[in-house]
Structures are given as C-alpha cells and as structure tokens.
Write a protein that binds this DNA or RNA. Structure first.
Lengths: 189, 189
DNA sequence: TCAAAAGTGTTTATAATACACCCATGG
DNA sequence: CCATGGGTGTATTATAAACACTTTTGA
C-alpha cells in the first residue's frame, strides 16, 4: 500500500491491475484479522474487503486466478476460508435489509435472473414470485416497459426490471423495537 | 501492541490498565480506518472495537477519562465522532437480532431496568410490555422466581429476569428470504 | 392446442405494536 | 382505599410465504 493511500483505494488499484476488475459496483470493509499465527511465516495483519461486481460481467483474469462458486472453493491458505465465509454472511445479511443487490445485477434484468443471483448468494431456494413482491413493495426494483424475449422453447416474455437506486439504501432498518409511529408519518398513510 | 499479540487481546490489556475495565462482557471489532489525514500529524491506521460492560458496573477511571451519554459527547479529535456513531449503529442493529443485551445487563434485572438499557442504546422510547414479550418469545430472557422490592412509593414488585445465555446468539437470522420450511421442521411444530 | 415460462389473486402464518384492563404493593 | 408501578389479554397491523390459477409466448 502506498504511504498516502487509503486501504480501500489501494485495493481498487490492485484489483484493476491484477484481475481487470475495474467495475466494482460496491466495496465494503469486512474485518481486520490479526491472529498471531494466521501466516506461519511471519506476523501479518490483514484487512479484508467484500467487492461486488455485476453478474453479467466476465472480466479476464490471469492464469493463476479463477472464479469459484462459494460452495466449491478449493482449499485455501491460512484463515482465508474463514474470511470468505464471513464475507458471505455479510452479503447474505445485507441482501435482506438493503438494496445492495444493485451491485450484483446488470442495468436491467428479469426476475428469474435476479432470483438466480439471490440464490447463489443466499445458498437456498427462493421463489421468483416472492422475490418480486418483496422487492417491489420495498420499492427496491421497478418494472421497465421492455421485456426479454422468451427462449426458443416458448414461454411468456419476462418483464425487464431495474433497481430504483444504484447506491446503498437500508430499506428495512428496524426489524423490531421500531420507534413509535410519529403523527407525521401517520398522516402520510 | 506487542509483536505476538492479537489486536483484541491487546485492547483488553490496555483497557484493564488504563480504565479498570476488566469485565468486558462482549468485544467486537468494528472497523479499520485508514484515511490519509485522519490524524494530521502522521499517517495512522486505527482498528476500532466496541466493548460492552454491564450497566450496573461503575469502574474507576482516571481523571482524564469520563463516561458520557452518547447524545452528550464532547467534541472529539479526528474521525472519532464518526467511529463512535458507527459503533452505536452496530450495537443498535445487534440488539434487534441477537441476544447481545446480556453484555449490558447485570445477572438479574427487572424489565423496567432492561428497558432503560435498550432505550439508551436505541435512542428512542420502547415499551416495557413489548420488550418483555419479544424477548420472552425469542427465549432470550427468562423469569426467575425472585422479585425486586417495590420502591417506598409502593407498586407491585417486579419479577427479576435473567438472560438465558450469556454468549452471543443470533435469534433472528432471516428477516426475509427465509429458506423453505423443511419437512423436518414442519413435523416438530 | 400444448408445453413452457411469467405473473397475479388470494389465503395463511407469524410477529410485533397498541392499548385496555387487572394485579400487588406501600402508605 | 388509593396511588404507583408491574403484568396480562386481546385486537390490530404489517409482512412474507405458499400455492392455485391466469397470461403470453413458440413450436
């Protein structure tokens, strides 16, 4: 890292240089690991980040690098597996109470495509029907006037949707212990 | 920090030495700040932690240190205000989906006492009635057979409660996008 | 006209909030 | 017996999951 650089921007520079990942749509610091023996060769401290890129991009990567499905990761050195797991948990949580999905989806997409992205992140099946309802109710996505052509096997054309905002918004801040509804809010309902 | 020490244990050592805070019930890493000019004197990187202690403790602290209500903090140097705010948000969120309150409450307590702790953390009013219901339903707290004596002004004695577990448990992992209920789980209901 | 895929209508379940009311105590 | 707080019963509201059914397309 350069002496006059922040950790985040340093990371962006390295990713662009090494793996051609110039279109990181969302970057979030995960955690700093300081275990004395995380690397047996020498004392290191590592600050990990989560970087999200659109699922339709396929940036060229060097021969010693590869894309992996989280459930099929090769064995990793040191505490890397634990860090990856921690990152996935963070993403899983954020998908449920923010609009962070915008960073994983292309500009426009069908609900089925978005469902696949969510399934990959969450690790369990979810229905396109309910995904659509939830995201529409929260006004996280909205329908465009376009539709995707059906596959050659036939089928109804799928409406294309887009994310309403492409910056992080917390849409469900209070799961419980909500502050009492103020009179202002009551009037607006 | 010692060369052979983790960040967390180093922190514990410093807090015990400087502010007599030996009974930290919960410690969690918050974030690492690396802004180039966070300290104008020299380039520093700071990893911040959130430490929770029981609200009934009142450890002795040196003259240059003081307990402050979050809403009445004195002006702070560098990016400290922003870090403190970030820590409070973290605590607020964790109180809503984990049992982390155990780290802020004494062994036994009345619902009214616990309510005051929650109010201080969340920053808005919550009713003792609803707090009790939610925490009981989630099995985060349970009633003891004891009761606290009423104040001299009279009143019904308050049941004393305790936290069921005193280690971190995530009680509400899936706000939405829950995995489909398996047949196993269905049988057990 | 049938299969495939998308989307809607409607029911059900769950969890939290709101609030009226009852209980137990000290003076 | 009344003021003071604690606690319970119950209605309301909000949100999401489940699933049957309808729509729109290609062959």
């Amino acid at each position: 890292m350069g002496d006059h650089e922040r950790l985040g921007s340093s990371l962006g520079r390295h990713m662009a240089a090494k793996v051609d990942l110039t279109d990181v749509a969302y970057l979030e610091q995960l955690e700093t690991r300081s275990d004395v023996d995380r690397d047996p060769r020498e004392r290191t401290i590592a600050t990990a980040y989560v970087a999200l890129v659109s699922a339709n991009l396929n940036p060229s990567i060097p021969a010693d690098t590869a894309w992996c499905h989280v459930d099929e990761l090769p064995p990793t050195a040191f505490d890397h597996a634990s860090i990856i797991n921690s990152g996935r948990e963070r993403l899983r949580a954020k998908l449920t109470y923010t609009n962070v999905g915008y960073a994983l989806a292309p500009e426009t997409f069908t609900i089925a495509e978005l469902r696949d992205v969510y399934v990959a992140c969450l690790g369990h099946a979810i229905s396109a029907t309910n995904l659509q309802r939830v995201l529409l109710r929260r006004k996280i996505i909205k329908a465009t006037n376009d539709a995707a052509p059906p596959p050659s096997s036939g089928g109804r054309p799928a409406t294309l949707y887009r994310f309403a905002e492409r910056t992080l918004l917390v849409t469900d801040p209070f799961a419980v212990f909500r502050p009492p509804r103020s009179l202002d809010q009551e009037r607006s309902t």
